[in-house]
Simulated assay, not measured.
Amino acid sequence: MWDPKQYSHFRDERKRPFFELLARVDVDAPSHVADLGCGTGDLTRVLTERWQEARVYGVDSSSAMVEEARRRPSSESLRFDVADLAGWEPPAPLDVLVSNAALHWVPDHGALLRRLVEKLAPGGVLAFQIPANFDAPSHRHIDEVRALPRFATKLESVRRGHAGPIEVYESLLSDLGLTVDAWETTYLHVLPGEDAVLEWLLGTTLRPVLAALNPEEGRAFLDTLRPLLRQSYPAHARGTPFRFTRRFVVARRGR
């Protein structure tokens, strides 16, 4: 259901949080590094440039994304796998485990974090960033349209992203014995183009929704959603302002 071309829209806005997360990862010479939810692998390749001696694994549940990642030139130290993010097992304990805007699709973050910590080597670092704008007008409007009788039955079981309070992540990981650095950032993106917020959502949040609908239903869904988004996110000559909050966690396991 994921479309690499659509996801690449607003590439700069989507990759900025990755670099802000990575800047807080203080590891000199890791042997094994993984990127969970690697997408097309562009940012995974950044990990190979920073840690040139490391074996790096890019993991994504979307075969379309991984196929695109494999098409692009890469070093021999980089491998891409199609796998469930929670269930993937690394070939060796990880010194760095990164996930940028992917874990919000996985249910039960408490159980998930325990599994991810188990994959770390002693002294290993878990670093993740997740969107936390699920109460924003964009997502409220999607929920409104999802609840309409025309769509409700088909979309009842379609997953919705979620993020817990940042204090919960700090507490869970601290209780597991990790040293935690956690913070939150709200970006104000000014998006270019017509129906810019809708175009943003088409790259992520709306993918599972549209995958559950036939083409006619999908068009009807978007035609219903579009005016709601235009009202909440009016366009200006300079673009469409779009507030977006993200939560960041960098946690180091004890040695």
Rank of each mutant, 00 (worst) to 15 (best):
E20C: 00
F134I: 08
P93D: 12
G218M: 07
R219I: 11
V25R: 00
L43A: 04
V25Q: 00
G87R: 12
L97Y: 05
R114K: 11
A220P: 01
R72L: 10
D135W: 08
G164K: 08
L155M: 04
P93W: 04
V33H: 01
L120P: 03
A235F: 01
P165F: 02
R247E: 11
E156T: 13
H109W: 00
G123D: 12
R219F: 02
D35Q: 03
L113T: 14
H236P: 02
F18E: 04
A251Y: 00
R252I: 04
P93Q: 06
F80H: 11
E67T: 10
R243K: 15
P227V: 09
R16I: 06
F19T: 07
F248D: 10
E89T: 13
R150Q: 15
V180R: 02
L148Y: 02
D181R: 07
P149N: 06
E156K: 15
E67M: 03
R230E: 15
R226A: 04
A102T: 10
R16S: 03
L228I: 13
A92F: 01
T186I: 04
A211W: 07
S75V: 09
Q129F: 01
R247H: 11
D28T: 15
P73Y: 05
A29Y: 03
D81S: 12
G124T: 08
G161E: 14
R150V: 07
K119H: 07
P93I: 05
L172G: 08
P227N: 13
A182K: 09
V98Y: 02
H189R: 10
W183V: 04
H109L: 05
V190E: 14
W200T: 03
D95S: 05
A132W: 04
I166T: 01
